[in-house]
Design a binder for these strands. Sequence first.
RNA 1: GGCGCGGUACCCAAGUGGUAAGGGAGAGGUCUGCAAAACCUUUAUGCGCCGGUUCGAUCCCGGCCCGCGCCUCCA
Length: 484
Amino acid sequence: MALQVYNTLTRQKEEFTPQREGRVGMYVCGPTVYGHSHIGHAKSYVSFDAIVRYLRFIGYKVLYVQNITDVGHLTDDADEGEDKIEKQSKLDRVHPMQIAEMYTRSYFEDMDSLGVLRPDIAPRASGHITEQIEIIEELLKKGNAYIAHGSVYFDVSKFKEYGKLSGRSVEDMEAGSRVEVNPEKHHPADFALWKKAQPEHIMQWPSPWGKGYPGWHIECSAMSMKYLGDTFDIHGGGLENQFPHHECEVAQSECATGKQFVKYWIHNNMVTVNGQKMGKSLGNFVTLKDAFKKFDPLVVRFFILQSHYRSTLDFGDEALHGAKVGFEKLQNTFRNLNEEITKASRENRTEEAAIDLPVYESRFRAAMDDDFNTPQAIAVLFDLSRETNALLSLETKFSIGSLSAIREVFRKFGGTVLGLITGESGVTSTDVQLEADLMKLLIEVRADVRTQKLWSLSDKIRDGLKNFGITLEDKKDGTGWRRG
RNA sequence: GGCGCGGUACCCAAGUGGUAAGGGAGAGGUCUGCAAAACCUUUAUGCGCCGGUUCGAUCCCGGCCCGCGCCUCCA
């Protein structure tokens, strides 16, 4: 069964076949960096992270490009309003590029915490002004755009396929228009490619049409095609950007090149809070930095992957708590398995565990092949977890070989693909080593105390450690400990 | 008004034309000094409502109700 991907362009699942065998070019709309990232960003980029990881896992060489929007994204109607970055810079009384730089760093910091692999290229819009101007010139040359008072607009009437991605027609939009039409535009659906800058505008660049700055949509066309070619395999982004942003990208790109822009469009759904969309303009958003104070970033990642990327995800404390406990269950299994492997390495065991790992592997891959169904893939991991726990609780002690085989499956699927299972040492810093030695000593002392049945003293140690965030677990063959 | 999505147990959330994954919470049990962890058993005769197609529908079709998204910036 080959990989099936839901393509917004055709509104159905399709077998995934990249244009060049073995290689995938993928572009995902990145953040506009004028504030800290929120849960919505997390859902989007964690989802695409899982997609990239899986594509690589099944053997594709993926070039993953994700832009940073640091200019041109306006606060209001796509062709009016103020530049978001510049607005924030005025509020904070610092240079716009300082705002962009600060929140770009903040963004990557949060994504790193979530275990999101960095894109291969993270181009800045402000660093690609010339590429954007080139496309605009091409569009003017071909008659797909027009100049009005120093600004340049895309002429929607010249692209008869406008609306094919979002499934709407220009006529439909006129009827429901809620926004006052910019008088410079020939048609309400026309959109800005280049905006003339007022003298006080900080971010402006010279262009054939005078000083100005680029419209929002053009940056993605310029940067994606620069690094991935005129036609590339996957373009991803949030559902709310399907229209107008992505529709405009298609229009301007295909008019400029005369070729198909993107083969597969992948849109991820929104995060809601109490059933309502979470958005910057609604003021009900939760920043990741705040969320991480209450929940481990990997718990947030797990929570996100437990629902499908095309479903909405309702963010709430109760649900997050459920995710926390479930995630810990998975981690416990993996830790216990590692401990058992350590023991097995010191003993001569020959018993093989009867566990059908290939079945787990094929179930996992079938889930991911079906439009990246991470919730189902995680369910497979839980099934494996339960069977592993059952094996570990048996009297029989299994060989290091059969235990390691199980660990490999956890590492591959839980680690490499889903990015949930990380760590398990390899490198131990001196602090970690000291901690381990101290814990070993404490546990030994407590064991002595317990043989003398001095329970209150024994519990004092356990309760005290609990206050430091360390949990002791007494098992048949000794006491284990963990953080949390 | 136009376009689109969803309504699955107490909560989160997959899914299939043949009788409902997984996680959390709850209940009972095993283990244990106790706790924690883990394991076993259990928890929707039912998948918004009403019709239709079918041997059979939660899944297909039609209608209705409710919620949500896009059509203005947003991942």
